[in-house]
Design a protein around this nucleic acid. Sequence first.
DNA 1: TCATTGTCCTACTAAAATAGTAGGAATTAA
DNA 2: TTAATTCCTACTATTTTAGTAGGACAATGA
Lengths: 138, 138
Amino acid sequence: MLSKKTQYAFRALAHLALNYGKDPVRISSIALQEKIPLKFLENILVELKNADLLESKKGKGGGYSLKISPKKINLATVIRVINGPIALLPCVSLNFYEKCIDCDEKTCGLRKMMIIARDSTLKVLEKKTLNDIISAQG
Amino acid sequence: MLSKKTQYAFRALAHLALNYGKDPVRISSIALQEKIPLKFLENILVELKNADLLESKKGKGGGYSLKISPKKINLATVIRVINGPIALLPCVSLNFYEKCIDCDEKTCGLRKMMIIARDSTLKVLEKKTLNDIISAQG
DNA sequence: TCATTGTCCTACTAAAATAGTAGGAATTAA
DNA sequence: TTAATTCCTACTATTTTAGTAGGACAATGA
Protein backbone atom coordinates (compact mmCIF):
# COMPACT_ATOMS: atom_id res chain seq x y z
CA MET A 1 0.00 0.00 0.00
CA LEU A 2 1.05 3.57 -0.63
CA SER A 3 1.81 5.69 2.42
CA LYS A 4 -0.44 8.61 3.32
CA LYS A 5 2.46 10.81 2.36
CA THR A 6 2.27 9.45 -1.17
CA GLN A 7 -1.46 10.03 -1.32
CA TYR A 8 -0.87 13.61 -0.20
CA ALA A 9 1.76 13.97 -2.88
CA PHE A 10 -0.67 12.85 -5.56
CA ARG A 11 -3.34 15.21 -4.36
CA ALA A 12 -0.94 18.13 -4.32
CA LEU A 13 0.35 17.23 -7.78
CA ALA A 14 -3.14 16.93 -9.18
CA HIS A 15 -3.89 20.33 -7.70
CA LEU A 16 -0.83 21.80 -9.37
CA ALA A 17 -1.65 20.04 -12.61
CA LEU A 18 -4.91 21.94 -12.73
CA ASN A 19 -2.88 25.13 -12.39
CA TYR A 20 -0.27 24.21 -14.95
CA GLY A 21 0.81 27.22 -16.97
CA LYS A 22 -0.65 29.66 -14.42
CA ASP A 23 0.87 31.49 -11.45
CA PRO A 24 2.62 29.46 -8.75
CA VAL A 25 0.41 28.15 -5.93
CA ARG A 26 1.27 28.71 -2.27
CA ILE A 27 1.83 25.66 -0.03
CA SER A 28 -0.70 27.04 2.43
CA SER A 29 -3.27 27.25 -0.31
CA ILE A 30 -2.76 23.63 -1.36
CA ALA A 31 -2.73 22.48 2.27
CA LEU A 32 -6.01 24.20 2.97
CA GLN A 33 -7.90 23.07 -0.12
CA GLU A 34 -6.56 19.52 -0.17
CA LYS A 35 -6.72 19.14 3.62
CA ILE A 36 -3.07 18.21 4.05
CA PRO A 37 -1.11 19.17 7.19
CA LEU A 38 0.88 22.24 6.20
CA LYS A 39 4.29 21.36 7.58
CA PHE A 40 4.06 17.83 6.28
CA LEU A 41 3.17 19.12 2.85
CA GLU A 42 6.23 21.38 2.91
CA ASN A 43 8.46 18.33 3.21
CA ILE A 44 6.66 16.53 0.44
CA LEU A 45 6.86 19.42 -2.01
CA VAL A 46 10.58 19.89 -1.38
CA GLU A 47 11.14 16.22 -2.21
CA LEU A 48 9.14 16.53 -5.41
CA LYS A 49 11.13 19.63 -6.27
CA ASN A 50 14.44 17.85 -5.65
CA ALA A 51 13.20 15.17 -8.03
CA ASP A 52 12.73 17.88 -10.67
CA LEU A 53 9.00 17.50 -10.88
CA LEU A 54 8.26 20.90 -9.38
CA GLU A 55 9.77 24.34 -9.38
CA SER A 56 9.34 26.94 -6.70
CA LYS A 57 9.52 30.66 -6.24
CA LYS A 58 10.13 32.32 -2.91
CA GLY A 59 8.77 35.55 -1.51
CA LYS A 60 5.61 37.43 -2.36
CA GLY A 61 3.73 35.94 -5.28
CA GLY A 62 5.77 32.77 -4.82
CA GLY A 63 4.73 29.17 -4.52
CA TYR A 64 4.99 25.92 -6.41
CA SER A 65 4.25 24.90 -9.96
CA LEU A 66 4.81 21.85 -12.12
CA LYS A 67 8.15 21.99 -13.88
CA ILE A 68 6.96 19.86 -16.80
CA SER A 69 3.63 19.09 -18.39
CA PRO A 70 1.19 16.92 -16.40
CA LYS A 71 1.18 14.66 -19.43
CA LYS A 72 4.85 13.89 -18.85
CA ILE A 73 4.65 12.99 -15.18
CA ASN A 74 3.66 9.36 -14.81
CA LEU A 75 2.45 7.67 -11.65
CA ALA A 76 5.42 5.34 -11.32
CA THR A 77 7.78 8.29 -11.11
CA VAL A 78 5.81 9.91 -8.31
CA ILE A 79 5.55 6.66 -6.35
CA ARG A 80 9.27 6.06 -6.64
CA VAL A 81 10.13 9.53 -5.40
CA ILE A 82 7.87 9.54 -2.36
CA ASN A 83 7.02 5.93 -1.59
CA GLY A 84 10.00 3.97 -2.85
CA PRO A 85 10.10 0.70 -4.80
CA ILE A 86 7.13 -0.53 -6.81
CA ALA A 87 8.24 -4.15 -7.10
CA LEU A 88 7.11 -6.65 -4.48
CA LEU A 89 10.60 -7.96 -3.77
CA PRO A 90 13.85 -5.98 -3.47
CA CYS A 91 15.64 -8.39 -5.82
CA VAL A 92 13.14 -7.53 -8.53
CA SER A 93 13.16 -3.76 -8.22
CA LEU A 94 14.46 -1.84 -11.22
CA ASN A 95 15.23 1.36 -9.32
CA PHE A 96 15.88 0.14 -5.78
CA TYR A 97 17.50 -3.23 -6.35
CA GLU A 98 18.80 -5.17 -3.34
CA LYS A 99 19.87 -8.75 -3.14
CA CYS A 100 17.49 -11.07 -1.30
CA ILE A 101 19.03 -12.94 1.61
CA ASP A 102 19.69 -16.64 1.08
CA CYS A 103 18.24 -16.70 -2.40
CA ASP A 104 19.87 -17.72 -5.65
CA GLU A 105 18.43 -15.41 -8.26
CA LYS A 106 19.19 -17.78 -11.09
CA THR A 107 16.92 -20.48 -9.72
CA CYS A 108 14.43 -18.63 -7.51
CA GLY A 109 10.95 -19.42 -8.80
CA LEU A 110 9.25 -16.78 -6.68
CA ARG A 111 11.50 -14.14 -8.20
CA LYS A 112 10.44 -15.09 -11.71
CA MET A 113 6.79 -14.70 -10.81
CA MET A 114 7.43 -11.36 -9.16
CA ILE A 115 9.14 -10.06 -12.27
CA ILE A 116 6.02 -10.83 -14.25
CA ALA A 117 3.85 -9.12 -11.63
CA ARG A 118 6.13 -6.08 -11.56
CA ASP A 119 6.03 -5.68 -15.34
CA SER A 120 2.28 -5.93 -15.35
CA THR A 121 1.94 -3.24 -12.68
CA LEU A 122 4.50 -0.95 -14.29
CA LYS A 123 2.80 -1.16 -17.63
CA VAL A 124 -0.07 0.76 -16.07
CA LEU A 125 1.80 3.03 -13.68
CA GLU A 126 4.30 4.18 -16.29
CA LYS A 127 1.63 4.88 -18.84
CA LYS A 128 -0.82 6.80 -16.68
CA THR A 129 0.05 10.41 -15.89
CA LEU A 130 -1.09 13.31 -13.78
CA ASN A 131 -3.07 14.40 -16.77
CA ASP A 132 -5.00 11.14 -16.70
CA ILE A 133 -5.83 11.76 -13.05
CA ILE A 134 -7.26 15.21 -13.60
CA SER A 135 -9.01 14.13 -16.78
CA ALA A 136 -10.67 11.24 -14.96
CA GLN A 137 -12.07 13.47 -12.26
CA GLY A 138 -14.86 15.62 -13.36
CA MET B 1 7.07 -4.37 -0.91
CA LEU B 2 6.29 -7.68 0.69
CA SER B 3 7.44 -8.12 4.28
CA LYS B 4 10.19 -10.60 5.10
CA LYS B 5 7.49 -12.60 6.82
CA THR B 6 5.72 -12.98 3.49
CA GLN B 7 8.91 -14.03 1.76
CA TYR B 8 9.42 -16.64 4.46
CA ALA B 9 5.86 -17.82 3.94
CA PHE B 10 6.46 -18.29 0.23
CA ARG B 11 9.64 -20.21 0.82
CA ALA B 12 7.98 -22.50 3.32
CA LEU B 13 5.02 -23.04 1.02
CA ALA B 14 7.27 -23.84 -1.92
CA HIS B 15 9.07 -26.31 0.30
CA LEU B 16 5.79 -27.95 1.24
CA ALA B 17 4.64 -27.91 -2.36
CA LEU B 18 7.62 -30.07 -3.25
CA ASN B 19 6.45 -32.50 -0.57
CA TYR B 20 2.81 -32.44 -1.57
CA GLY B 21 1.25 -35.88 -1.22
CA LYS B 22 4.06 -37.12 1.02
CA ASP B 23 4.49 -37.25 4.81
CA PRO B 24 4.12 -34.03 6.81
CA VAL B 25 7.25 -31.92 7.22
CA ARG B 26 8.45 -30.69 10.61
CA ILE B 27 8.71 -26.93 11.22
CA SER B 28 12.29 -27.41 12.39
CA SER B 29 13.12 -29.13 9.13
CA ILE B 30 11.72 -26.30 7.03
CA ALA B 31 13.37 -23.69 9.25
CA LEU B 32 16.74 -25.33 8.87
CA GLN B 33 16.66 -25.90 5.15
CA GLU B 34 15.05 -22.61 4.22
CA LYS B 35 17.03 -20.62 6.79
CA ILE B 36 14.02 -19.15 8.52
CA PRO B 37 14.05 -18.37 12.27
CA LEU B 38 12.23 -21.30 13.90
CA LYS B 39 9.88 -19.50 16.25
CA PHE B 40 9.00 -16.93 13.62
CA LEU B 41 8.20 -19.68 11.19
CA GLU B 42 5.89 -21.30 13.75
CA ASN B 43 3.75 -18.15 13.76
CA ILE B 44 3.68 -18.00 9.99
CA LEU B 45 2.62 -21.60 9.54
CA VAL B 46 -0.17 -21.27 12.09
CA GLU B 47 -1.52 -18.32 10.14
CA LEU B 48 -1.40 -20.25 6.89
CA LYS B 49 -3.14 -23.11 8.61
CA ASN B 50 -5.88 -20.85 9.95
CA ALA B 51 -6.36 -19.66 6.38
CA ASP B 52 -6.95 -23.28 5.36
CA LEU B 53 -3.91 -23.52 3.15
CA LEU B 54 -2.09 -25.98 5.41
CA GLU B 55 -2.97 -28.84 7.69
CA SER B 56 -0.93 -30.02 10.63
CA LYS B 57 -0.38 -33.11 12.71
CA LYS B 58 1.00 -33.01 16.23
CA GLY B 59 3.31 -35.43 17.99
CA LYS B 60 5.78 -37.89 16.57
CA GLY B 61 5.71 -38.10 12.79
CA GLY B 62 3.79 -34.82 12.79
CA GLY B 63 4.39 -31.65 10.88
CA TYR B 64 2.79 -29.56 8.19
CA SER B 65 1.53 -30.31 4.72
CA LEU B 66 -0.41 -28.47 2.04
CA LYS B 67 -4.12 -28.94 2.47
CA ILE B 68 -4.84 -28.49 -1.23
CA SER B 69 -2.88 -28.92 -4.43
CA PRO B 70 -0.08 -26.43 -5.14
CA LYS B 71 -1.87 -25.76 -8.39
CA LYS B 72 -4.79 -24.36 -6.45
CA ILE B 73 -2.90 -21.96 -4.21
CA ASN B 74 -2.32 -18.71 -6.02
CA LEU B 75 0.09 -15.97 -5.01
CA ALA B 76 -2.57 -13.37 -4.32
CA THR B 77 -4.13 -15.60 -1.67
CA VAL B 78 -0.84 -16.05 0.15
CA ILE B 79 -0.03 -12.35 0.05
CA ARG B 80 -3.44 -11.46 1.43
CA VAL B 81 -3.12 -13.90 4.31
CA ILE B 82 0.36 -12.86 5.44
CA ASN B 83 1.00 -9.42 4.02
CA GLY B 84 -2.44 -7.85 3.70
CA PRO B 85 -3.91 -5.79 0.86
CA ILE B 86 -2.52 -5.96 -2.66
CA ALA B 87 -4.08 -2.73 -3.92
CA LEU B 88 -2.09 0.49 -3.63
CA LEU B 89 -4.91 2.41 -1.92
CA PRO B 90 -7.28 1.20 0.79
CA CYS B 91 -10.31 2.54 -1.11
CA VAL B 92 -9.40 0.26 -4.02
CA SER B 93 -8.80 -2.96 -2.12
CA LEU B 94 -11.18 -5.81 -2.86
CA ASN B 95 -10.49 -7.72 0.35
CA PHE B 96 -9.42 -4.99 2.78
CA TYR B 97 -11.51 -2.05 1.68
CA GLU B 98 -11.37 1.15 3.72
CA LYS B 99 -12.63 4.57 2.84
CA CYS B 100 -9.96 7.13 2.02
CA ILE B 101 -10.06 10.27 4.12
CA ASP B 102 -11.36 13.40 2.44
CA CYS B 103 -11.86 11.75 -0.92
CA ASP B 104 -15.01 11.43 -2.97
CA GLU B 105 -14.82 8.04 -4.62
CA LYS B 106 -17.17 9.02 -7.39
CA THR B 107 -14.89 11.73 -8.69
CA CYS B 108 -11.41 10.75 -7.49
CA GLY B 109 -9.19 10.44 -10.54
CA LEU B 110 -6.33 8.81 -8.66
CA ARG B 111 -8.68 6.07 -7.49
CA LYS B 112 -9.64 5.25 -11.06
CA MET B 113 -6.00 4.84 -12.05
CA MET B 114 -5.31 2.67 -9.03
CA ILE B 115 -8.18 0.36 -9.92
CA ILE B 116 -6.60 -0.21 -13.31
CA ALA B 117 -3.20 -0.86 -11.69
CA ARG B 118 -4.74 -3.23 -9.17
CA ASP B 119 -6.49 -5.26 -11.83
CA SER B 120 -3.33 -5.52 -13.84
CA THR B 121 -1.36 -6.78 -10.84
CA LEU B 122 -4.07 -9.19 -9.75
CA LYS B 123 -4.30 -10.70 -13.18
CA VAL B 124 -0.82 -12.09 -12.62
CA LEU B 125 -0.94 -12.81 -8.89
CA GLU B 126 -4.25 -14.67 -9.09
CA LYS B 127 -3.15 -16.74 -12.02
CA LYS B 128 0.26 -17.81 -10.80
CA THR B 129 0.37 -20.56 -8.19
CA LEU B 130 2.77 -22.38 -5.91
CA ASN B 131 3.09 -24.90 -8.65
CA ASP B 132 4.38 -22.23 -10.99
CA ILE B 133 6.98 -21.27 -8.40
CA ILE B 134 8.36 -24.76 -8.03
CA SER B 135 8.14 -25.41 -11.75
CA ALA B 136 10.10 -22.25 -12.49
CA GLN B 137 12.95 -23.24 -10.19
CA GLY B 138 15.01 -26.02 -11.47
C1' DT C 1 17.08 49.26 2.96
C1' DC C 2 13.66 46.98 5.46
C1' DA C 3 9.44 44.60 6.41
C1' DT C 4 6.69 41.04 4.55
C1' DT C 5 5.82 36.92 2.22
C1' DG C 6 6.97 32.83 1.15
C1' DT C 7 10.08 28.51 0.69
C1' DC C 8 13.70 25.68 2.84
C1' DC C 9 16.40 23.28 6.38
C1' DT C 10 17.43 20.72 10.66
C1' DA C 11 15.84 18.40 14.22
C1' DC C 12 12.63 16.35 17.18
C1' DT C 13 8.55 13.18 18.64
C1' DA C 14 4.58 9.80 19.04
C1' DA C 15 2.49 5.94 17.24
C1' DA C 16 2.36 1.96 14.48
C1' DA C 17 4.34 -1.86 11.96
C1' DT C 18 7.97 -5.24 11.45
C1' DA C 19 10.77 -8.83 12.89
C1' DG C 20 11.55 -11.34 15.80
C1' DT C 21 12.04 -14.12 21.06
C1' DA C 22 10.55 -16.74 25.30
C1' DG C 23 8.27 -20.08 27.73
C1' DG C 24 5.34 -23.28 28.29
C1' DA C 25 0.54 -25.65 27.27
C1' DA C 26 -1.80 -29.02 24.44
C1' DT C 27 -1.90 -33.08 21.64
C1' DT C 28 -0.51 -37.31 19.59
C1' DA C 29 2.19 -41.62 18.78
C1' DA C 30 4.83 -45.27 20.29
C1' DT D 1 3.84 -42.27 30.21
C1' DT D 2 7.37 -40.18 27.77
C1' DA D 3 9.02 -38.05 23.83
C1' DA D 4 7.94 -35.40 19.91
C1' DT D 5 5.68 -31.99 17.90
C1' DT D 6 2.41 -28.15 17.11
C1' DC D 7 0.04 -24.25 19.35
C1' DC D 8 -0.80 -20.22 22.28
C1' DT D 9 0.16 -15.94 24.86
C1' DA D 10 2.96 -12.49 25.67
C1' DC D 11 6.98 -9.75 25.42
C1' DT D 12 10.84 -6.81 23.07
C1' DA D 13 13.85 -4.20 19.88
C1' DT D 14 14.16 -1.87 15.63
C1' DT D 15 12.40 0.58 11.81
C1' DT D 16 8.99 3.19 9.43
C1' DT D 17 5.31 6.40 9.30
C1' DA D 18 3.24 10.57 10.17
C1' DG D 19 3.70 14.14 11.63
C1' DT D 20 5.53 18.96 14.58
C1' DA D 21 8.65 22.95 15.86
C1' DG D 22 11.39 26.70 15.05
C1' DG D 23 13.77 29.37 12.63
C1' DA D 24 17.08 30.34 8.37
C1' DC D 25 17.07 31.93 3.81
C1' DA D 26 15.44 34.34 -0.34
C1' DA D 27 12.65 37.45 -3.11
C1' DT D 28 9.63 41.25 -3.60
C1' DG D 29 7.78 45.76 -3.06
C1' DA D 30 7.50 49.99 -0.81
